[in-house]
Design a protein around this nucleic acid. Structure first.
Lengths: 344, 344
DNA sequence: AGCAACAGTGTTAACGCTCACATCGCACGC
DNA sequence: GCGTGCGATGTGAGCGTTAACACTGTTGCT
């Protein structure tokens, strides 16, 4: 058993044991051709004997490639971001990259600047930003930071490619489904107004109603939380009590839909008997709520993978100056029990 | 405006502009004392002018410190791991570390080995592993991998410190609460049997029942999903229909509780009128289910922060050979509407 | 006055790797 | 039989930083 005197073995230690030069060891490690088979075997044996493993820092210094990608994300308590991050991570690892994450609690320029700085310090080769808030996207666009950068759910035209689910189409599908069941119009419980997704869903909902010549009720804006859904569900029940016709509600995410369901139940309104409810996201609980929630499925994992694909594409052609094309993943309506024709 | 001819500026570029040696620049960058105030200003100005920022790779090579910590996690779709990771991330950043994550889909030795290898390749200085499965903990203990290592929710005695919520105490509190309401015994819908948390909760549940001299029903094991909760909730309803007394159920997590709630509702059993249900986790939806779910709160963020604290402690004293003490965060019962006295 | 101490700065040598190039032997062609 | 080319290997330089030490000038003490 050879030893390296306590310190972890380096290339030249392996070289000595194998009786070759350090450069030959490097060739073997990196799978270069033009090394005699027998030499490869000898080097491999020496590597195993010493428990050598290459120092990625030294390699990075000379190759100028860290093999690290950054991921900037918002609050990972939310279903979407957490899932997306997971998709990004998997794709990054498969592509041989390491992933360094930083989550930003505060979407203000200061908070984002700090997060970006963290990534720049680490010399990431590129970055995916889960940027659902308008303010965050602007900060991203204005601030210096790692490049190339791909945004997830970030709206377009900010100078970097954007990958996301087609929110507007999803919203239209939800509304069309409800109108198709015979509802005269569809109310809307929206997400946080500073989120681009919330805006896109409002827009799709409104357009679809207008396109069918329906009345557009005032949307109610929540903050994505079940708590706010509950509060707004109560307001909806009040509208109903005031004589307004409330037979269908499109809720901007499933978590709020949970609260809406509770509020309607508390107000003595049956779902879907009196009011139909459609959510957005398809959280794992959706099918097992009472009633099973009709919702719009977003394939977050696929979004994450697509974002990484775009990033890798940008990485391969570093000299291009144009912004790579955006990528959109379709949203799919999944009908369950919470939507039905309006009461007669 | 000075230029560095396209390539990004390095220390000696700054030195040239400031009219000092690169070493003085290094001293300024690292905040060494014994640099004249005026020199500091000159160097700072040169840094700003060139947009210099130190190359972390080169620094890491010479200092042998990468400032990167690893985080190994399971499926981040689950509420707990996602939250914990978020706590770890925040704490790492505050301590000035970068965090590289790798999620392992497959808790077998092969899958874990690959994930650990990923971290070792990156020369992380330490690692937090969210390791709720028994198999994963064993793989972690047996395999070579980054050290020091701290496990979250990993059971003890595996050769590394473990940080987690006191599952058993949480389970006992839940059972005690139900017994206190007057239930004769408490049924249990358990989590995946290969998860240590599931095991601990089963244990706490059983011990508390035995301690009060109650009958211990056969637990039903699910897989944490709402789907399995629904399935097992049906089985519970069947037990009830067969004449068995089922007035209280302790469900090992809130997601399954959602399914149980649905199944009981479908079977015509009222909650809490006929059956009381208590969950575990306190997911954001819990308060807004119908009825609001009594559950056991786990402060995952605090667990993550505690894990990082232990890791940093181990990092500061690299020569200690003993395993740092485990850390346990208490679980707290939160009573809502799904638990009440048994039917008369 | 003379010498030690110290603040402020520069010089040089690593860190562990890859790249570019040099070297050597051998098969091949005419 | 000797250049040509190529496969297989070694040598040296350099990536950008910090650590160690050397140097200079000033201060303070005897």
């Amino acid at each position: 058993m050879s030893t390296t005197g306590g310190r972890s073995p380096v290339m030249s230690d392996v070289a000595k044991v194998a009786g070759v030069s350090h450069q030959t060891v490097s060739r073997v490690v990196n799978g270069h051709p033009n090394v005699r088979e027998e030499t490869v075997v000898r080097v491999r044996r020496a590597i195993a004997e010493l428990g050598y493993h290459p120092n990625s820092t030294a390699r990075a210094l000379v190759t100028r490639r860290t093999n690290v990608l950054g991921a900037l994300t918002v609050d990972t308590t939310l279903f979407g971001p957490a899932q997306t991050l997971s998709g990004i991570e998997r794709a990054a690892r498969e592509a041989g990259y390491f992933l360094s994450i930083v989550s930003v609690d505060d979407p203000s320029p200061d908070g984002v600047a700090e997060a970006l700085d963290h990534l720049v310090q680490q010399t990431v080769e590129g970055c995916v930003a889960i940027a659902p808030q308008r303010e965050l996207v602007h900060a991203l666009a204005d601030l210096p930071g790692p490049r190339p950068l791909v945004a997830v759910e970030g709206g377009e035209g900010a100078g970097f490619p954007v990958v996301g689910v087609d929110q507007e189409q999803g919203a239209r599908d939800a509304v069309r489904h409800l109108l198709g069941l015979g509802h005269r119009t569809v109310h809307h419980v929206a997400g946080r107004t500073d989120w681009l997704e919330a805006e896109a869903r409002v827009h799709g909902w409104r357009e679809e109603l207008l396109g069918s010549g329906r009345e557009v009720p005032t949307p109610l804006a929540g903050d994505w939380s079940p708590r706010s859904g509950h509060e707004l569900g109560r307001r909806l029940a009040e509208r109903q009590a005031m004589g307004e016709e409330v037979t269908a509600v499109f809720v901007a995410n499933d978590q709020m839909a949970v609260g809406v369901l509770k509020a309607l139940h508390e107000a003595g309104l049956g779902v879907p008997g009196d009011v139909s409810v459609v959510g957005f996201d398809d959280i794992p609980e959706a099918a097992y709520l009472t009633p099973g929630l009709t919702t719009v499925v977003q394939d977050f994992t696929r979004v994450g993978a697509a974002a990484l694909e775009v990033l890798l594409g940008a990485l391969e052609t570093p000299d291009r100056t144009d912004v790579p094309a955006d990528r959109t993943v379709p949203a799919v309506l999944r009908v369950r029990d919470s939507s039905a024709p309006p009461p007669a």
